[in-house]
């Protein structure tokens, strides 16, 4: 697995993490290309079904990035997101994928450096964990079988 390049989906709030990713870019900070960003209007918009579907479709890791405590544009969407992430972590444990492949992170729009740092740390963490236990199988299962 030394050449394993994880696929990581990051659900990023439009008001903070998404802008922070932009900031990282304009500051010429590098972060791994493994991160696939999905912009959401608020981290609280990310539902359990979005996270689970990301894993079903082959993600090795997922994180939800919302605003710092007290800074949510919609008051408390970030805290709702945190609780939802905890709930889905338990479900991932039940499924056998492992809750540690999912994380909640918080940052402000100006924290380009933090966005880049989290992206690298998450990539490293998932690289160590190895491919998602359902990834090779999902690829296999979606291929038409002869018979």
């Amino acid at each position: 697995m030394e050449n394993f390049e994880p696929v990581i989906v990051a659900f990023c709030c439009h008001y903070c993490a998404y802008t922070a990713a932009d900031m990282a870019g304009s500051q010429r900070l590098t972060y791994p290309a493994n991160i696939k960003i999905i912009r959401v209007p608020c981290s609280g918009k990310v539902d359990a079904i979005h996270i689970i579907k990301a894993f079903e479709k082959g993600a090795d890791g997922v994180y939800v990035a919302g605003c710092l405590d007290g800074d949510c544009h919609f008051k408390n969407g970030n805290n709702r997101a945190s609780r939802r992430v905890e709930y889905v972590q338990k479900y991932l444990d039940e499924i056998g994928i492992g809750g540690e492949r999912l994380e909640m992170v918080k940052m402000s729009a100006g924290m380009g450096y933090l966005f880049a740092k989290i992206a690298s740390e998450m990539t490293e963490k998932i690289r160590k964990l190895g491919p998602s236990p359902v990834r090779p199988l999902t690829v296999q299962a979606s291929q038409p079988t002869a018979s």
């Binding site: 689970i52 056998g96 994928i97 359902v134 199988l137």
Partner: peptide, 16 residues
């Protein structure tokens, strides 16, 4: 929504 979540969960658990 729960139907969708359970269907995905069951499929992924069984695949393993």
């Amino acid at each position: 929504k729960e139907v969708g979540l359970l269907a995905s969960g069951l499929k992924m658990a069984l695949l393993q």
